[in-house]
């Protein structure tokens, strides 16, 4: 019974790991192929965090309920809080100092 339970848990954990590696690969490909800075920021924030969440979820499934999985949850929450701030700092710097010519028109601003 215990052996069966462990193997099912390992199977789900490996599914999570493979999903995480798909998201991380899409991050790398998106950073190379996207044409603009802001679209690269999209690839660098969302796909990266989705990959991170799925890798952490796989680790927690392998570990079970213990103090180590609580520590992993602490790291995950810390990444949740800090990564959008880092992306926002880069984006707001770029918006203020006009590094790349802005692409929006007057119609978009009035909405």
């Amino acid at each position: 019974m215990i052996d069966f339970n462990l193997s099912v848990r390992q199977l789900f954990a490996f599914v999570f790991f493979i999903a995480g590696i798909y998201f991380l690969l899409s991050t790398a490909v998106g950073l190379i192929r996207f044409p603009n800075l802001y679209t690269r920021l999209h690839a660098g924030s969302k796909c990266l965090m989705a990959g991170g969440i799925s890798v952490f979820m796989g680790c927690i499934l392998l570990e079970g309920i213990s103090f180590v999985s609580l520590k992993l949850i602490v790291i995950m929450v810390f990444l949740f809080i800090t990564n959008p701030i880092a992306i926002h700092v880069i984006a707001s710097f770029d918006n203020n100092y006009n590094l790349i010519p802005k692409t929006y028109t007057k119609e978009d601003l009035d909405k």
Partner: peptide, 13 residues
Amino acid sequence: LVAMNSIGVMFLL
């Protein structure tokens, strides 16, 4: 900077 940020998170994993 964006590319370096994503490399850092990957090495944390």
